[in-house]
Design a protein around this nucleic acid. Structure first.
Length: 590
RNA sequence: CGGGGCGUAGCGCAGCCUGGUUAGCGCGCCUGCCUUGGGAGCAGGAGGUCAUGGGUUCGAAUCCCGUCGCCCCGACCA
């Protein structure tokens, strides 16, 4: 391919709206263009990268025995009402009216459609297990698209659904997908960590997310350097947790203090001159509509998933100010655990505190020196807060670390939520009608691209992994009007293309500096420079994008040598992937 | 949805506060000369509903009101 014909509109300056490195560089490298918020065109160069990732995904999905199909993006809303997600998904679901009165939605995911298909097609245990997948555009009405291609309203997703007759079959499908995901991301060359994820109210005993560590990531990952424990903050447990010491019998009784108009933890603590970690806050939530309270240390953050589980509720929402006052008889800002009338769960960290400052359940009143276990019960103790840096690891007790992660893949055991709601059943060996046991597995294809750039760039531009680079080799003839130079470039291009390589030749009549800067920007892994100077000595220059030094090789036979270099690099990468696969297999309990 | 910022040429910006002829600059683009191993130079040129609707005014990119769009922070995110 000739650069002059390839439509690669590189930009010298950073577009004002772009902040995230992947957004800036994909724009500057001429790979994407924005149409509107969360909607991007993939220009030819960017599309090549996307296609390469898709190809790897497809190969690995097929290798697991999963079958590819293609479901409609356009879905009847009735299916969503049937599964109960029409309400649950809310505004994120893009709705539209077709043919004047036909209510449709654009699919944000396809559990409903696959379950509908399943109840049609799956009749017998003999057809199971089965995993189906597709690679398709998804639509979500994101309230806030951001960071270029990281969060968009329309994106390419590989979604797979496993159908099983037994929990064993589900577990096997899950394992297969989990391993296939590792292979996909290993092969794409995108760094990732696998974290335990929150599986949501639907239950299911297992869920993992694949995260690219990068500052642009929207998720918070909790990791233990000691034992390798890694979890999404939504999920991460906190170690320690032994019950605190018994209340000090010598502790003086608590005292009531006037705190006029001091409502927030900060205001109260500043007013009383005590540190926030000696205070406690009482939060009121509606668990399945019933008011409940959560008590945690003033400087700690509530984890709603943990609280929802603590109350064994299906839904949990923060109570409005009016609801709080109605439930407790006290306005926001002065709530406390002493003599509270609604059910309360206390965070474990509270049990370790000898005395706390809390709200007095009366306007403009707080209580000082309240002793947990003496002045209020510690019966319902639970881990209900977000893990933070320095907290003990739940597995080994080492200090946890906190990093940002970009979610590129998610594997999830669904169980029978959808099959039961929508009547997807099969007949088992005994002739009983049983709900299909399902799993779902997603990869954000665009995010592989974004993640690769977030993880692989420098001041000059992108460093594509060889496997997903738009081209593998960039030939840069420096004097395009010099026949000898151009002939050499053309011959090399044809030879490499004949050898099956993806080659781009920068045939633009530009100065060397322009070409080199653009070469660095678009990040093609191997650059071959052909110039008058080198040809005089019978050499061409080769340079890996991620490697500082260039080297000279004989111009004669350079095609063979370069094809060999790429082949070696690919073999080395394959070897690395295989090594990781073996390590995973070895680490897995028998 | 709350808070903040911004819409002037393909990109980056100035002009607006204090209204006044043909709306500027840099990059990019076209033509020519010159140059040629890390974003050269000179000369000429093309390209604008100043986001949009209304209002004030003799006169609006500029002042006022509405609308739309985009970005950032937060909330939200199977």
């Amino acid at each position: 391919m000739r650069w002059s014909r390839a439509l690669i509109p590189t930009l010298k300056e950073t577009p004002a709206d772009a902040v995230a490195p992947s957004h800036v560089l994909l724009l500057r490298a001429g790979m994407i263009r924005q149409l509107g918020a969360g909607a991007y065109t993939y220009l030819p160069l960017g599309l090549r990268v996307l296609h390469k990732a898709v190809r790897i995904i497809r190969e690995e999905m097929d290798a697991t025995g999963a079958l590819e199909l293609l479901m409609p993006a356009l879905q009847p809303v009735e299916l969503w009402k049937e599964s109960g997600r029409y309400e649950a998904y809310g505004d994120l679901l893009m709705k539209l009216v077709v043919s004047k009165s036909h209510h449709m939605a654009l699919g944000p995911t396809h559990e409903e459609v696959i379950t509908d298909l399943t109840r049609d097609l799956i009749r017998s245990y003999k057809q199971l297990p089965l995993t189906l997948y597709q690679i398709q555009t998804k639509f979500r009405d994101e309230p806030r698209p951001r960071f270029g291609v990281v969060r968009t309203r329309e994106f390419l997703m590989k979604d797979a659904y496993s159908l099983g007759a037994t929990v064993d079959q589900l577990n096997q499908s899950y394992e297969l997908m989990y391993e296939a995901y590792c292979r996909v991301f290993d092969r794409c060359g995108t760094p990732y960590v696998i974290v335990e994820a929150e599986s949501g109210p639907i239950g299911g005993d297992s869920s993992h997310e694949f995260m690219v560590p990068c500052s642009t990531g929207e998720d918070t990952v909790i990791q233990c350097a000691g034992c390798g424990y890694a979890a999404n903050q939504e999920r991460a447990e906190i170690g320690g947790g032994a019950a605190g010491a018994a209340p000090d019998p010598a502790a003086p009784p608590y005292e009531r203090v006037a705190t006029p108009n001091k409502r927030t933890i900060r205001e109260v603590c500043e007013f009383l001159g005590v540190p926030e970690e000696t205070s406690a806050k009482l939060l009121v939530y509606l668990a399945d509509g019933r008011p409940v309270a959560a008590l945690l240390r003033g400087d700690h953050e509530l984890n709603e998933s943990k609280l929802r589980r603590a109350f064994q509720a299906n839904s949990l929402v923060a109570a409005e100010a009016a609801e709080v006052e109605k439930a407790t008889g006290t306005p926001l800002g002065f709530l406390g655990p002493v003599a509270i009338k609604i059910p309360m769960v206390v965070d474990r960290a509270i049990a370790a505190m000898p005395a706390v400052v809390v709200g007095g359940n009366a306007v403009d009143v707080h209580l000082k020196g309240v002793v947990p276990g003496r002045d209020f019960a510690l019966a319902a103790l639970a881990d209900i807060r977000n893990a933070q840096a320095g907290d003990p690891c739940p597995k080994c007790g080492s200090a946890l670390q906190i990093t940002a992660g970009l979610e590129i893949g998610h594997v999830f055991k669904l169980g029978t939520k959808y099959s039961k709601a929508m009547g997807a059943t099969y007949l088992d060996e005994a002739g009983h009608e049983v709900a299909v046991i399902m799993g779902c597995y997603g990869i954000g294809v665009n995010r592989i691209i974004a993640g690769a750039v977030e993880a692989g760039h420098d001041k000059s531009g992108i460093l594509w992994p060889l496997a997903i680079a738009p081209y593998q080799v960039l030939i840069v003839p420096l004097q395009v009007k010099n026949e000898q130079v151009m002939n050499q470039a053309t011959a090399l291009e044809q030879e490499l293309e004949a050898a099956g390589l993806d080659v781009l030749t920068d045939d633009r009549d530009q100065r060397a500096g322009v070409k080199f800067n653009d070469a660095d920007l678009i990040g093609v892994p191997l650059r071959v420079v052909i110039g008058e100077r080198g040809l005089k000595d019978g050499v061409v220059e080769i340079k890996w994008r991620d490697w500082a030094a260039a080297e000279q090789i004989p111009a004669a036979g350079s095609g063979v040598a370069i094809a060999q270099l790429i082949a070696t690099a690919r073999a080395e990468h394959d070897r690395l992937c295989e090594e990781r696969r073996r390590a995973r297999a070895a680490a897995k309990p028998a």
